[in-house]
Each structure stands twice: as C-alpha cells, then as structure tokens.
C-alpha cells in the first residue's frame, strides 16, 4: 500500500505527473508554493510555473486569462485566501464565464491547527457550492487526491480541489472508483448511513467499526464530490437505512450536511443529523485537540449515531 503522506504532497506529485502529458497545463501560486507543494511542479517545469506573490485576487483573474488563451491553469494558495479573498474574482472572472480554471487549495479546515481561526477555512465549500457550474472535489487520502487532479483536468470548466494539510494514510486503493459526481460506498450497512467527506471519511470508517461492536450496522459513503451532488445516492441511503449522519471538516452550514438536507427535505422522512463545525470559528490548537473539541472524532460520530437511533445513552 502506498505510504501515508500529506494530501498537499500528493497534489504536488500529481501536478508533476500531469504536466508530463498535458503541455497546456500551467501552475500558479501566491507565495505559498512550499506549502501547497506546487514547488514540485516549479522544480520540474519552471517555464510553466508562475508565482504571483501575495496577490491572490490577481492570481485568480490571471488564471482566467490563461484559460481564455487556451491553457489549463491550476492555481494554488491556502483554501481561505483562494475561496475567500479571491471569491468575487472566482465568481465573476471564472465561474460566471465557465473558465477552465482549476484551483487546488490547501490548508483547508480545522486540521491547519496551530495557525488558528484566521487561517482555518470552514466555509470554503459553502462559498464554492453556490456558484453555478462549479465542481467541488474533496479527496480523503493521497490516492484520491491524485485521482482528483486528473479528473479536474478532464473536466471542461472550473474545479475546486479541497486539499488538507495533515499526513494521512490511504483508505482507498488505486481501483476504488472515482467518478466526479458519484458518491462511493466504502462500507455496506442497513441500520444507519454515515455520509462523509475529506479527512472525515477515515473517522466515519472507524465509527462504523465502533458501531459494529455495538451491533449497529453502519454504511459509510464517501462524498468526494460535493458538486455536482449525488442526490440519487442520498435518497437511496435514506430509503435503505432510514437514518443518515453527515460528517465534514467544515461548517454544518453550506457544506455536505446542507447538501444532504436539501435533498432530504420534502423527499424523505429519514432521521438525520449533521456533524461538523456548529456555526462557530476555529482557533489555535493541535489538530487532534481541535477535532476532539469540535466533535470530529470516530467516538463522537459513534455516539451521535447511537443517539439518532435512540440507542445508548446519547
């Protein structure tokens, strides 16, 4: 099994690999090439790498200009500064005109850790999800990150790849299906379904183990694509299990939890709960300490599932 690594390293490696066959690809960064790992592409293809310095808004519009001129730009910075500071640039110069721009933005979510709430993007999925025509990919491990980069290049239009910073083990394999827009069932189970995205997929799988020990059969579905959203899978889950829990390293407002709620509302009476960041900001701390405090752990997922099913102490 390929070794654990940070998703940003997997992202950098995938860019280098893609660059070998895709001559139209250019990579842009905003003074974070050594953090987003686009520095790997820069080392290999310096003539196709452009550092814009600390100027995220300029970089995003310049990416649109590259796309309008026949290139396939991958623009990178931290998720907060890409989707946040450059939001309106993405909205009008990229999304509004369906420009073929990809942005792999790293340091998403609480797992940024010690840098604190000013750097932890917990709203980026929400910001991108309201944009018509946007594709949002949230890989859960290094293998999936590579697939997301290749899938993004194959899509004609804007794609946001949400990249996390911690070093993580692979939980999928080369042969696990990865089709943008199609959620992937990682574990079957008929009592409750845990829908997870990004780093939370691993916690969901661990939670399913804990639940199994309690006699509860939990399915785990990996929503590596938040947009276009796999509504059909949600309705199937609701019918099959009657109870759905969403888990994301993002605000419960506007992300996976909201997307599932929007599908269920009026269409299903399945029991439902959203685990994620409950309408508050992040703060400094070690990622594991933050996950514990914010309830992004297998143990919490397990007890929320039990409570939703009316079992355990809740």
């Amino acid at each position: 099994m390929p070794e654990p690594k940070s998703l940003r390293v997997a992202y950098g490696e995938a860019l280098v690999e893609l660059g070998a066959t895709n001559g139209k690809m250019v990579v842009l960064d905003a003074d974070l090439a050594h953090a987003t790992m686009t520095s790997m592409f820069e080392a290999k293809y310096p003539e196709r790498f452009f550092n814009f310095g600390l100027a995220e808004a300029n970089m995003m519009c310049a990416a649109a200009g590259f796309a309008h001129s026949g290139f396939v730009p991958f623009a990178s910075t931290f998720a907060l500064f890409g989707t946040g500071r450059a939001y309106e640039q993405i909205r009008n110069s990229i999304s509004y005109v369906n420009a073929n721009v990809k942005f792999g933005l790293s340091h998403s979510g609480l797992s940024v850790g010690e840098d604190g709430g000013s750097h932890q993007s917990i709203e980026d999925i929400a910001l991108m999800r309201v944009l018509p025509g946007m594709t949002i990919l949230v890989p859960c491990d290094p293998i999936e990150t590579r697939k997301a980069v290749f899938a993004a290049a194959a899509i004609d239009g804007p794609v946001y790849i949400r990249v996390a910073r911690p070093i993580v083990e692979n939980i999928t394999t080369e042969s696990t299906p990865f089709v943008p827009g199609e959620a992937c069932v990682l574990r079957e189970g008929g009592d409750i379904c845990i829908a997870a995205t990004g780093l939370m997929v691993k916690e969901a799988l661990k939670a399913a183990e804990l639940l199994a020990a309690l006699g509860i059969k939990a399915a785990v579905v990996n929503f590596h694509t938040i947009k276009p959203f796999d509504s059909k899978r949600v309705l199937d889950m609701a019918k099959g299990c009657g109870a759905i829990v969403t888990v994301e390293e993002h605000s419960v407002i506007g992300g996976l939890g909201s997307a599932v709620a929007e599908v269920l509302a009026g269409n299903s009476s399945a029991k439902f709960e959203r685990i994620g960041i409950q309408d508050r900001f992040g703060k400094s701390g070690k990622p594991a300490d933050l996950f514990a405090e914010y309830g992004l752990t297998a143990a919490n997922i397990c007890s929320r599932c039990e409570a939703l099913l009316g079992r355990g102490v809740g």
Binding site: E114, G116, G117, S118, H119, S284, K286
Partner: peptide, 13 residues
C-alpha cells in the same frame, strides 16, 4: 502559545 486553551492565538486576536 498556540495551545488549545491559550489566549495567545497563532495570529493576533
């Protein structure tokens, strides 16, 4: 500094 229960955040608050 930067611990979960500290007022000293990674960036000024």
């Amino acid at each position: 500094l930067r611990q979960i229960d500290s007022h000293l955040q990674g960036h000024p608050d």
